[in-house]
């Protein structure tokens, strides 16, 4: 594994005046946000709010109409090796003829560059990453034979193998069982405790305050961004979800009451 990357004083992610459109339909409008290093950060907002698009724009997967993104003070292209990406589970074909170990090894391809092939060392790294997420025994399984939770773990292992400083995850908690959810949360907190930054698109408002340190509230526009304690408020949630929040506001209130008992991470 490469050593600790040199420190920078720049925020993990800095987004300035970012507007993204699919054809003529804008998805993100003039987003200005800076995300601090070493935090667990949730991106929250209703369907179609542009949450995934924001991640993809940071990674350069979708072009920006205007604005720029910097990762640790530099354009993403210069920081690729610092960033690990966990796409939505449904974004790939799980019937592809490949094994869990092969998929995790793909996380190391960026380090290899063009033409070079992975060798035994890389496969050992991949195996160690699978071990970290608790599915080392499934290394040689064809990926369609894995359960949803196991597939999510394989995706996480692939990101871990990248040994990145910033992780961008598209709904890492979607469609997994309670055991896996706890395991995934443990992993993310472990990363945060080692000074890594995790930015995750998150759907479950009930768990935002328990799982994350920092929240970005998004609904095409940036509603607010900041520490969960001060930003994840009923007022902000109403502004993010509009009238649709009635059912959810009770949940938010319950959380605000519960927060004082939450141990500080």
């Amino acid at each position: 594994m490469p050593g600790e990357p040199p420190r920078t004083d720049a925020p993990a992610i800095e987004v300035h005046d970012l507007t993204v459109a699919y054809r003529t339909k804008p998805v993100l409008w003039d987003i200005d946000v800076a995300l601090p290093e070493g935090r667990l950060i949730a991106i929250v907002g209703p369907n179609g709010a542009g949450k995934s698009t924001l991640l993809k724009a940071i990674l350069g997967l979708v072009p920006a109409v205007t604005g720029w993104v910097k990762v640790f003070g530099e354009p993403y292209e210069k920081r690729r090796s610092w960033v690990g990406y966990v796409p939505q589970r449904e974004s790939v074909d799980w019937d592809f003829p490949t094994t869990a170990l092969d998929v995790v090894t793909m996380g190391l391809y960026g380090r290899l560059g063009w033409f070079r092939r992975p060798n035994a060392t890389h496969r050992d790294l991949a195996r160690a990453a699978l071990d970290q997420v608790g599915v080392a025994d499934l290394a040689d399984r064809q990926i369609s034979q894995l359960s949803g939770g196991q597939q999510q773990r394989v995706f996480l292992a692939r990101a871990l193998a990248q040994d990145a400083r910033l992780y961008l995850m598209d709904e890492p908690f979607a469609g997994i069982d309670v055991t896996t959810e706890r395991a995934v949360l443990g992993l993310l907190q472990g990363l945060r405790d080692r000074g890594r930054t995790v930015v995750a698109v998150h759907h479950d408002l009930q768990t935002v305050a328990d799982y994350f340190d920092h929240v970005v509230l998004l609904n095409m526009h940036l509603v607010d961004s900041g520490p969960v304690e001060t930003t994840f408020t009923k007022d902000n949630l109403t502004r993010t979800y509009g009238g649709r929040l009635t059912a959810l506001s009770n949940a938010a209130e319950a959380l605000l009451e519960r927060r004082p008992s939450r141990p500080k991470g």
Binding site: K56, L59, R80, V83, D102, V103, M106, G110
Partner: peptide, 21 residues
């Protein structure tokens, strides 16, 4: 020569792009 690149871009083009392929 491009086995790894063919494999990665066929399975997960988004990751391939993010990794610089």
């Amino acid at each position: 020569a491009l086995y790894k690149e063919f494999e990665l871009t066929s399975f997960d083009p988004a990751l391939a792009t993010a990794l610089g392929f």
